[in-house]
Amino acid sequence: MNHFFHQWDSWWMRSGPPHVLALFRICFAAFLLIEAATYLPHVPMMFSSAGLAIPMQTGLSFLAPPLPAIAWLVAGGYVVAVLLLLVGFGMRAALVLLACYFLYYWQLSFYAFPSSYHRLFFFTFLVLLLGGADKTFSLRMKLAHGSWTAWENISILPQRLLAVQLTATYAVVGIQKWWLPLWQGGDVLYYSFIGRWGTPLARLLVALGLPPMFYDALTLLTKVFETLIPVGLWIPRVRWAFFAGGLAFHLLIALLLGIWWFLVLVPAYIVFFEPEAVHAALRKRLSISSLPVD
């Protein structure tokens, strides 16, 4: 029993190098920047009183869509917060700001639909608030220790929480498809390809007139892959194959259904590596110290 608790404690709470979490932070922030870039040209239409923003809570007048100039300022603040997260400076303040921004834009119908990916993003803000993601490859470390690659040991807890959440997301999404009535045949993909999410490429595919068996097989493949990936990502021997599979899977979803937000999960797979292994691998390529500062 004691052994179990020791293992449990070590797996969740031990200290380790911060490189996995720092790389995750950089990829995640870069992705948020890309997403922001898709909305920025349309700030007045989407987030101001000059557009079609219908606020969710009509009683909160101070959260009503602002004038376009204010909306631009607010959007600029969002970009600054993402940049701070990216460079690793004032990270916790940036994360609190980003969480508030998500709630604000949700109110303004930016996130009018409670999408799974935006919930994952919000969850990530909360997890990164536990700290550690700015303890290397960050402006914070550069200013404090004179080097971008200086590092301090951190708690592994945020990395584990992110890994377990990804596992849970894939596992539950995959397993439930085996009995969800609408996922028992290929119709789900056929109608999705010509439905609200279908892209021009997906419509082209459907226009080929492929037999129902094609959609049945694709649906089965999706279910098998989503069921296996939460296991495969944890097994070092097959992990890279599932990385490639995950990339192909999410690329196809982006190309055929336009749901491109889940592509952020692919670089997030780094959280499945042990921090010591990533540190060792990086030391071979970069001039990273083998020891933490102080």
């Binding site: 999408s115 849970a168 539950v172 999404v173 439930q176 109608y191 439905g195």
Partner: peptide
Amino acid sequence: IFFYGMLAPYQGYSETSE
């Protein structure tokens, strides 16, 4: 419900557009 939302994307489809 918030966590459920992270575990339940794309549960179904519709045969009509709206």
